[in-house]
Design a protein around this nucleic acid. Structure first.
Lengths: 218, 218
DNA sequence: CGTTACCTTGATATATCTCAACTCAAGTGG
DNA sequence: CCACTTGAGTTGAGATATATCAAGGTAACG
């Protein structure tokens, strides 16, 4: 960890909307988000634009670029953000010398694989109400782990970004949020969010409103 | 690669339904699928059962277990299958000695992160018809890369497994398949599948029937 | 030959997408 | 300082994909 600090360059500041890496650009460095937030945007072959990741402080960015040596999506700052650059060459050399560094990277990657898999498969089976609940619970937990408030936070994403990330439309996201407000579960004004009833939010996230039969063998 | 062969144990045969690793079991070995196929099944905290991965010949299995040192889902043979065991300790030691081995593992992991992310986010936005088309295209491509027929194959999964994997119901999977048949795109009898019109299948996979507005900023 | 698991088909209900109009806030330039 | 523009968010009404429930069919298997 200390070694990692040695090869990390001082934090860079990105203005809102700045592009940290363009889709298809060669991987030169990984990044660690220090402050602010980024989104990863993928443009598919047939021209769709998808938000595939949200990067918050503490996150390691670019692990998905190692395979092909090329960033699979564009990284765009959602607000003024600070990121640390970790030159990939140096990181690789470090992994040569230190098995701890290697383990750290491997575990980060392994974590991401599992996390994406489970979360997204869960979302596939969920209603809009439950998807959003899952989303905010995950965000809340990430903020908590980083020492920020877990029940009151600002998300720089637009409703459209959230919708794209969750596979919904902006309208549905909006409507679901006002439902939460009516039920006194969450407060959403603009991009400020406040969780009022965490337990109820958890219940909503797990309630697979429809889709509740257990048909999978074994 | 040759070194990897040295530490790999001879292939083991699994009977249909056999459990290669149980969810929560400690990670001792990774596996490489040689013949047959496995599914990964996750039981969530609230008792849902999800099929989160399909493992075909050539796939590396267990990369998602490295993080916590524990398998995040059960690995179940869908048919009589042959797998090679790769003791994790030895693999780790090998990574110490050979940067090529380390790169191989890192690239496998990186590939999985990106693949899951993109494919699942795509699915989130797709109708049942397109989800199944994506699914079969991906399978077909995987078989092709391994030297099997890309337009005619057997999938040992049940409709329920497929449904769970794609976030649909078995009924919808079935109905969609008969639609494909009516359109002469695919033939599905039992677990034998034949792709009749690859181009049309690609078109179906990309056609996001609904959900076709571009609302994401940037 | 009966049992079991899987698959199919049909009718109905509902979640959510789609389209369109409107509000609101922020920023711009005259 | 005020009209104008622009992008985001909201709300409503209607269309539709797909879940749900239920019943019948098929195929493997002991």
């Amino acid at each position: 960890m200390a070694l990692l600090g040695e090869i990390t360059r001082p934090a860079v500041t990105l203005e809102k909307g700045a592009i940290l890496a363009r889709q298809g650009a060669a991987l030169c460095s990984l990044f660690a988000v220090h402050t602010g937030s980024l989104k990863q945007v993928n443009v598919t072959d047939n021209g769709e634009t998808l938000v595939t990741a949200l990067c918050l402080p503490g996150d390691m960015v670019g692990l998905d670029a190692i395979d092909k040596g090329v960033f699979p999506g564009s990284l765009i700052a959602l607000e003024t953000s600070g990121v640390c650059e970790i030159p990939y060459e140096k990181l690789d050399a470090l992994c040569d010398r230190s098995r701890e560094a290697r383990w750290l990277i491997q575990r980060c990657q392994s974590h991401d694989i599992h996390d994406e898999r489970l979360k997204l498969h869960l979302l596939l089976h969920r209603t809009a109400e439950a998807r959003l609940a899952c989303f905010f619970l995950a965000i809340s937990e990430r903020f908590r782990l980083r020492g920020y408030s877990s029940h009151h936070f600002r998300l720089a994403m637009t409703r459209s970004d959230i919708a794209s990330y969750l596979g919904l439309t902006p309208e549905t996201v909006g409507r679901t949020l006002v439902n939460y407000q009516r039920q006194n579960v969450m407060l959403a004004r603009g991009r400020e969010f406040r969780i009022l009833d965490l337990e109820q939010l958890k219940r909503l996230a797990e309630a697979n409103g429809r889709r509740h039969r257990q048909r999978v063998s074994q």
